[in-house]
Design a protein around this nucleic acid. Structure first.
Lengths: 216, 216
DNA sequence: GTATTCATTAGTGTATTCACTCCGGGAGGC
DNA sequence: GCCTCCCGGAGTGAATACACTAATGAATAC
């Protein structure tokens, strides 16, 4: 009865590309998205592009312009702080649910953070990706898959702003150091310390993002 | 540059109708959605229907079938419990943020609950709607708009299961009574009591929904 | 009578096409 | 000279048309 196509549908591929473009700052907040241009660039028709945009809209990454078409979402300070509030509530629960981390888990986390340390001199968007991997590697240990997905949505909504939150070298050094602290608290099994360090880590991130927000 | 159309787009209207159909149990969990049928029923083409479905997919109400097409999401027990966990975390925060409720607010809440009491003998789907209105009227008092939206998403994902959670008269009576307790705690400004009552209220709801879940 | 194969059909995913709206610039009136 | 009106272009939203796939049932071989 249905059609399975290749593997995933064209709309999904388009959504993936658009997500990357938003995350990497190719499409900036507030900027309208030309469906025709995107379609042509991907060599597909506009229909799957529109479907992809519908999905991104529900994810809070783009919004329908009242004049028609879609625009990259521009977060207000209010929205941003509430996203970080929700992150704190949900992430704290995840961290609390980690009963114990195995040695391979800790090794993975350390490896990720080491790769971040390697990139400390050459700021690239890979840093943001590694950062996300690090945190979600940790969150995954809680085993709450569906909560994890929601947290991921919250992260993605602030992605275009976090892109530059590590613009300065000092900030990147601090991030790596704080990650190290998180891993040590995790290894020690000190949940309360872990939560407190995570709170502080998130708080500095929020402060930096807010400063980015107020620029344009 | 763009087109403004009437007011909202056809895809949005289709999404609204589909949401209602899922919420009211016209489309049951696990059931495939025939795009053509929906389109014909609404007197529109399949394209906006597909776009609407894309939006619902991101909202977690439907999911893409591997064989193609969309299916109403069937929650697993695991998913359900995690949704309720997230609800508890976010809703508790909302309730804690209410500093004080004005007399008109309390009156509105009492009016909603009174209307529910009126319907106690004739179980209808209006009851579910009133129930949602009651709780969100309360949540709104916290002023955290964007958190509210997320909570609303979580509610909607369990909507098809909550439809029958008040199938028995005794359950409906208990709900109304518990709502009354919530309003009194709110009036008294006893936040901790409010949170505790809300937790209990939610917990019984979860238990009932789980029992519905294990039936089919 | 049962199992297997093949044609038909229902249903999806995508491309193409159409209709409609908004924005900018030039012609004409005051 | 300035304002108004008209019109062309750009861009979207939706409809139609097409290609392709999986399921269903009928026809045939055993």
């Amino acid at each position: 009865m249905p059609a399975g196509s290749t593997q995933d549908t064209l709309a999904e591929r388009a959504a993936l590309v658009l997500r990357e473009m938003v995350r990497d700052g190719v499409l900036l907040p507030g900027q309208p998205i030309r469906q025709g241009a995107v379609a042509e660039q991907l060599g597909i028709s506009r229909v799957p592009v529109r479907e992809a945009l519908k999905g991104l809209e529900a994810d809070g990454l783009v919004e329908a312009s009242p004049t028609g078409g879609f625009v990259v979402v521009r977060l207000s300070a209010e929205e941003l702080s509430q996203i970080y509030l929700m992150r704190r509530l949900l992430e704290t629960e995840l961290l609390r649910r980690i009963d114990s981390a195995t040695e391979p888990d800790l090794a993975t986390l350390n490896a990720l953070n080491a790769r971040m340390a390697d990139l400390i001199d050459t700021p690239t968007r890979e840093l943001a990706s590694l950062n996300e991997q690090f945190h979600f590697e940790m969150f995954t240990l809680a085993g709450l898959r569906h909560v994890l997905v929601e947290v991921q949505r919250l992260w993605h909504r602030t992605a275009p702003y976090r892109l530059v939150y590590s613009a300065e070298r000092a900030a990147r050094e601090r991030i790596v150091a704080e990650h190290d602290g998180l891993v040590r608290a995790l290894r020690a099994g000190d949940t309360e310390l872990l939560v407190r360090l995570a709170d502080e880590h998130r708080h500095t991130s929020e402060r930096d993002v807010v400063s980015v927000l107020s620029q344009p």
